[in-house]
Computed example of a mutant assay.
Amino acid sequence: MFKSFSSLIFFNMLIMGTIISICSNSWLGAWMGLEINLLSFIPLLNNIKNSLSTESSLKYFLVQALASSILLFIIIIMSLLDSSLFFFNMKMYLYLILNMSLLMKMGAAPFHFWFPEMMEGLSWLMSLMLMTWQKIAPMILIMYCMINNFMMIIIILSIFFGSIGGLNQTSLRKLMAYSSINHVGWMIASSMISQMYWLIYFSLYSFMTTSIILFFHKMNVFYINQVFNMLNAYPIMKFMLFCNFLSLGGLPPFMGFIPKWMVIQNFMDNIPMLILMVMLTLLTLYYYLRITYSAFMINYTIQKFNMNYNLSFNFILLMNFISTFGLIMMMFIFYLL
């Protein structure tokens, strides 16, 4: 991942920018942390010298710069109009625009237009950073000024576009991008319950995504047919990987069902909203099940890759095993306790 000492410096700046944002006691300090995070992530995106990574880094910079400029504009207005009568009358609208800029930064619907296309030009490790770490600061900042009615609309739109967009996708990166958009909706729903619920959901989502992405990175695959061809001679590995897909979709009894289960239990007082969320998520499970059915039931005779087992690959298999059977393991532990 780090091909030079400068890449390591940019990675440390990336972490520092996120920490500054979430630990700041003012909106201006949070904006500065987001800018440090942006300026350190751009060189990491452009680390691989090809046209796709350059295009993706340019898209990311333009979108993030637009969102940052809107965020700074609202922060300046809020500081100038503080404690005035006009501010109290316009407070709801200012927070609404503030939420929009933060939602654009993390790629939530309907501000997700840049996310899948940008993912298509990135390496797997940079895609992993974009789907996990880069969502932390905007998500925590949204919790400080969340408008519940507006967030209900964002939740439905994120789950809807994340489910519809993944249909008929053959690119694994776009498939993971739309899955990330879908999970953003559920993460926002968990943040409306409490910060602890969001932390649990985000941790489990990051673990499941990391286990899948590291496998794709190790095998250097980017399309579904490559996965089908390479895993034909390794049935256990095929089973682990595609069960991990089902876990990411939230199908019981896999570990990915745990965070959705928590959100469902706490949204029982809003049944129409809950039914809509679950029904839209079933579309995500549909295309995951369709891919899994094709992998398990169709025999692919062509093998394009030879895999060598080593320590890193065994670690990836262990992560996939935990992600697949995490719910069963936790229930067994709780039963013993």
Results as ranks from 00 to 15, higher is better:
L80Q: 15
G121Q: 05
L122K: 03
I188E: 02
M104A: 13
P116W: 05
S191Q: 14
M100D: 07
S123R: 08
Q169D: 12
I164W: 12
K105P: 11
S84D: 05
I164Q: 04
P138F: 13
L94Y: 11
L172A: 04
M131C: 07
P116Y: 09
I154C: 14
A109T: 01
S163N: 12
N168M: 10
W124Y: 00
T170S: 11
L199D: 15
E117G: 15
W114Y: 13
M92W: 11
S101I: 00
N168S: 12
L199H: 11
N168D: 02
G166F: 02
N182R: 06
A189F: 07
W186R: 08
S191K: 10
N149K: 12
L141G: 00
M187W: 06
I200F: 15
W133C: 00
F87Y: 15
M126Y: 12
I188Q: 05
S194P: 04
I193Q: 08
I181F: 00
S163W: 10
L94A: 04
N89C: 09
S171H: 12
Y144W: 08
L96V: 01
F160Q: 01
L81I: 05
S180M: 10
W186Q: 11
P138N: 09
M104N: 04
Y197P: 03
M129A: 10
M106E: 14
K105H: 08
M131E: 00
M192P: 09
M129I: 15
